[in-house]
């Protein structure tokens, strides 16, 4: 290949990678099973970090990321939360085979992270949304594929899309 051809490759490669990433994310968001889960702030000092909200997802399974021996030791590593048919937290290797809807993630420092704990928000609405999420009015809409990968679709405030909720409040 001559240099000019290499330049075309060098220019097209980032374009393909970026367009491909956006396409795959869009497909993942459009094709999965929709799940809505409530959220709550876990650290009042750092709920709003930059222009995104960070929060804990309330899966409703009680103890998450605990080693299971009844003590305070926390489980670390890959894990999953089964949503159907029975709600429960499981280390990745002990997930029940009959679980049909699940969210995969990782336990770190006693918290379950599924890559959905961050919601980007516009700068001008940051303070209002921060307050509402602190007041436990927030929930998130997810799209979950059959492998357990979850992507965020929307943030709800009192059950309404956040844009609608803010317009109503104003």
């Amino acid at each position: 290949m001559n240099k000019r051809t290499w330049l075309i490759v060098a220019l097209v490669l980032p374009l393909i990678a970026l367009v491909g990433t956006a396409y795959l994310k869009n497909m993942q968001r459009a094709s999965g099973t929709e799940v809505t889960l409530p959220i709550e702030g876990f650290d009042p000092r750092d709920l709003l970090s930059g222009h995104y909200l960070t929060y804990n997802v309330a899966y409703g399974v009680g103890q998450v990321c605990e080693s299971g021996d009844g003590g305070y030791a926390s489980y670390s590593g890959k894990a999953a939360i089964c949503l159907k048919p029975t709600l429960g937290f499981y280390p990745a290797d002990s997930l029940p085979s009959d679980c049909t809807l699940l969210i995969r993630g990782e336990c770190d420092a006693g918290r379950f992270n599924a890559g959905i704990e961050r919601f980007y928000i516009p700068e001008e609405h940051a303070a209002a949304l921060d307050t509402k999420v602190r007041d436990k009015q927030g929930s998130i809409v997810l799209s979950v594929d059959t492998d357990g990968n979850a992507v965020l679709k929307d943030l709800l405030i009192d059950g309404k899309p956040w844009k609608t909720a803010l317009e109503t409040a104003n």
């Binding site: 290499w6 060098a10 980032p14 970026l18 994310k25 992270n113 959905i116 704990e117 992507v151 965020l152």
Partner: peptide
């Protein structure tokens, strides 16, 4: 837009990989 939860250093590494040839 897609609210990905990745870290800043993953973004930098991804950028470096796709712009390396350039």
């Amino acid at each position: 837009i897609f609210h990905t939860g990745g870290e800043w250093y993953h973004a930098l590494l991804f950028w470096a990989v796709i712009t390396f040839l350039l």
